[in-house]
Every structure is written in structure tokens, then in C-alpha cells.
Design a binder for these strands. Structure first.
Length: 336
DNA sequence: TGTTGGTTCCTCATTACGTCA
DNA sequence: TCTGACGTAATGAGGAACCAA
């Protein structure tokens, strides 16, 4: 940004300041064209050439004339400027010229202001005001543009959010229906196990459930749509801790830290340690309420992408993290 | 060296005028 | 011809930066 505190150049400001004459900018700019006829404000012919005024006495007289005008002739000056119907619009040529200059640099240095005023036949003050108003208009347009962009972005996100809410509800419904199917079969299996219990049988409800899980998985795999692959999530949550750890170590072995850092959706391993309590529950106490709570936690997530299906290459705004911090994501992994 | 007064330019809000439908 | 909306030139307040005394 160019500083406006430039005092260089052989203009009236310098000359008067060098003469130690106190003078306001309004006085100086009114000196630029000093003519009682308002029509003569236009046109450089009436510019006073102070560079050719050698006598400081003349300069002093001009200064006091201007000061006098400012203090006592304000009526005339203001009447010239403020008479109803006397406000002059800039011509289209003047505006075009100013626009071209604005495109080059939207701030006005004193020398440039004087130069433009000379070329356009305007008062420097008018040029400065035009630039100020032009900057204000530019800013307003920019704000309108930014508002439009932000609103479009907001609308897009809102549509996405609503579709995720719908999908979330749909998945919850599917989970409930699957649970309803699972509970009767579970009881049936328990009854049969009680009758023919073997000492070699592994006595954990999770292993008992395993055939059912496999059935479910195999019944899902032939038609592996996106939704159905997500349905495997609660199944994996109920696996053994050892299985979880081995799977975790498998993935850890095959997936370097660097890669994980590069893939925003690889939050699975990042949060595994902190969230491992999900697997440390006493299996015998895994009541229906706990299960519901866990399911609720899992399915309130907007999306739980499969690691290999994660959209790494997409923009962050389209990534599967959905703006959540990696640490905030619930732990989960997939059985492959 | 810090203070103070003067000057300039800036932004922002507002007013007043010119134009047009 | 009148009127309201809109664009824009211009004004004024307040603040920041700079300079000189």
C-alpha cells in the first residue's frame, strides 16, 4: 500500500510547507482552480501554475486569498458546489480513464492524484473522492461475491448433511431388523448348547455367535452394495479382543505411519488405543442395553468408510472425515 | 528521547443530487 | 409532471501514520 504521506514533488503543498505556511488540504485544492464560476471547475486552463510564481509575496497573497476564501467565501464556494442542480457527474470519458487507473492501482499517491486531476481537468480532491468511493463500491461487490460463494457452499453442505441423516436412519432401521432376527437364533443356539455341551467347546458367547456372524457375512457378501458393507460394522465390534488386536497389528504392520499421515481417513489405527475400551467389556455382561448404546454410538457417525475405499484423493471438504478431527472418530475396522 | 501539534490519507456512515422507469 | 429507487459525488467523524518543533 502506498503511503499517502509523500511530500515530494513541486506542488502547492510542498511550496507552502517549505514556506512554513499552515494550510489545509482543502485550501490547497481550492487553489487548484480558483474561479467563482462553477462551470470553470472543469478544465486545466484555469490551473494556477505555482511553479512559475517566484515571488514569495505573491504566493503569500495567494495563500491568504485562499484562506480567506475558505473562511469567508465559503458561502460562494459552497453555493457553487451545493446549489441544487449544480452537482456535476463525471463524464463517461473521465470515468473510463479513472477506471483504467483504478485497475492499475486502487490507491492514490499524491503525485498520481495531481497528475490525474490535470489530465482530467478535475480538482485533485475530486479524484481522491472518486477513488475512495470506487474502493467502497469494489468492497461492497467483493462482499456480495463472497456471500454468494459461502451461501452456495452452505447449501451444498446442508444437502449432504440431510442425505447423511437419512442414510443414518435407514442404517439404524436395518440394524434393528437384523437384531430382531439375531436374538431368536441366539436363544435357540444356547438351548441346544446346554443340552450337548462339550468340555472342549470354547465357552464365550462371542465364539458361540461366530457361525451366525459368518452366516450374516456370507449372506451379505454376494450383494456387496455400499450400504451392506457398512452393515458389517456392528459384527466386527462384537468380536474377540484377541482378534481385534491381531487384526490391528496386521494393519499396523502393513501400513506405515507415513502412509497413515498421508491418508486422512486412516483414523482407524490412530484411535485404536484410546478406543480399545470398546473391546474390553466383560462379554458376559454385554447386555442388550450395552449393545444398544454401542450401536447408538457407532451409528450416530455420519459415515464410517472402509479404509481401502476411502477417498484419499478428494478435497478435504469431500473427504470421508466430514470435518471431524481424527481423534474424535470412533474406532472401527473391517474384516479383510 | 519522548511529547505534542499539524497534516494527510484512510475507512465508514451518511447526505444530497442526478437519472431513470 | 410527480415519485420512488438507485447510483454516485461529496461530506464529516474518527483513526493511523508521519513529520517537525
Amino acid at each position: 500500500m502506498a503511503s499517502g504521506k509523500l511530500y515530494g514533488g513541486p506542488n502547492m503543498t510542498d511550496m507552502l510547507q517549505n514556506e512554513r505556511l499552515p494550510c489545509s488540504s482543502e485550501v490547497l485544492e481550492s487553489l487548484w482552480v480558483h474561479n467563482s464560476d462553477p462551470a470553470s471547475f472543469q478544465g486545466p486552463k484555469s490551473v494556477i501554475d505555482f511553479e512559475n510564481i517566484s515571488s514569495s509575496r505573491i504566493r503569500e497573497r495567494l495563500f491568504f486569498q485562499a484562506l480567506d476564501k475558505e473562511e469567508n467565501c465559503d458561502e460562494d464556494y459552497d453555493s457553487c458546489l451545493h446549489q441544487p442542480g449544480k452537482k456535476r457527474r463525471l463524464t463517461s470519458e473521465q470515468v473510463q480513464f479513472l477506471e483504467r487507473n483504478f485497475e492499475v492501482e486502487n490507491k492514490l499517491e499524491p503525485e498520481r492524484k495531481v497528475q490525474l486531476a490535470k489530465e482530467l481537468g478535475l480538482q485533485p480532491r475530486q479524484v481522491a473522492i472518486w477513488f475512495q468511493n470506487r474502493r467502497a463500491r469494489f468492497k461492497t461487490k467483493q462482499l456480495e461475491k463472497e456471500y454468494g460463494t459461502l451461501k452456495a457452499s452452505f447449501d451444498r453442505l446442508k444437502v449432504d448433511y440431510e442425505s447423511f441423516i437419512q442414510e443414518n436412519q435407514k442404517l439404524k432401521d436395518e440394524v434393528n431388523s437384523l437384531k430382531n432376527k439375531l436374538i431368536p437364533r441366539d436363544k435357540e443356539t444356547e438351548n441346544s448348547d446346554d443340552k450337548s455341551s462339550s468340555p472342549n467347546a470354547v465357552n464365550t458367547p462371542y465364539h458361540k455367535e461366530e457361525p451366525i456372524m459368518k452366516d450374516l457375512i456370507s449372506s451379505n457378501t454376494p450383494k456387496t452394495t455400499e450400504n451392506e458393507s457398512k452393515l458389517q460394522l456392528p459384527i466386527m465390534v462384537t468380536c474377540k479382543v484377541e482378534d481385534a488386536n491381531s487384526a490391528k497389528s496386521d494393519v499396523l504392520d502393513s501400513d506405515s505411519t507415513e502412509d497413515r499421515n498421508n491418508h486422512p481417513s486412516s483414523f482407524v489405527m490412530e484411535t485404536a488405543t484410546d478406543s480399545s475400551h470398546a473391546f474390553e467389556q466383560d462379554n458376559s455382561d454385554f447386555s442388550q442395553d450395552d449393545e444398544d448404546e454401542l450401536s447408538e454410538k457407532l451409528f450416530t457417525l455420519p459415515c464410517l468408510p472402509k479404509v481401502e475405499d476411502a477417498c484419499y484423493d478428494e478435497n478435504p471438504e469431500h473427504s470421508c472425515n466430514f470435518g471431524f478431527q481424527v481423534e474424535d472418530q470412533t474406532f472401527c475396522f473391517w474384516p479383510y
